[in-house]
Simulated scan of single mutants.
Amino acid sequence: MSTTNQINPPKISVITVCFNASEYIGATVSSIVEQKSISFEYLIQDGGSGDDTLNIAGALLRDVPEGVEVSVVSEEDDGVYDAMNRAVERARGEYIIFMNAGDVFYSADALSKIGEILKVKSVDVLYGRHVIYSNDYESGEVAPRPIGCLWKRMVFSHQSMFAKRSLLAEYPFKVESLSSDHTQIYEMYSNGAVFYETELCICRYLDGGLSVQHYRRSILDRLLGVLKADGIFRFRSVQVVLYYILIFFAEPTIYEIRRRRKS
Rank of each mutant, 00 (worst) to 15 (best):
E197T: 08
G140H: 13
K113H: 04
L167A: 12
Y215R: 09
D77H: 13
G48Y: 12
I44V: 08
F235S: 15
I245Y: 00
V212M: 10
N8P: 11
I257A: 02
D103G: 03
E75L: 05
I56A: 11
G225H: 05
S30F: 09
Y196K: 03
I117G: 07
S160W: 02
V29F: 08
E199K: 15
Y42L: 07
V226Q: 02
V68Q: 14
I117W: 11
N55Y: 14
D63T: 06
A59L: 07
D46E: 03
G208L: 06
Y255V: 11
V212N: 13
T16E: 05
L60D: 10
E176A: 07
L206M: 14
G67S: 11
V72H: 15
Y106N: 06
V226P: 12
I25A: 04
V88E: 00
Q213F: 00
A83S: 14
A27Q: 15
T16V: 08
N8Y: 14
S263M: 05
L126P: 15
V240G: 00
Y133Q: 07
E41Q: 14
V68F: 11
F40N: 13
S263I: 06
F195S: 11
Y171E: 07
E256K: 11
L210Y: 01
V72R: 10
Y243V: 02
G115V: 06
E138A: 07
A91H: 12
Y186S: 00
H130M: 03
V240N: 01
S218P: 14
T183K: 11
T253D: 06
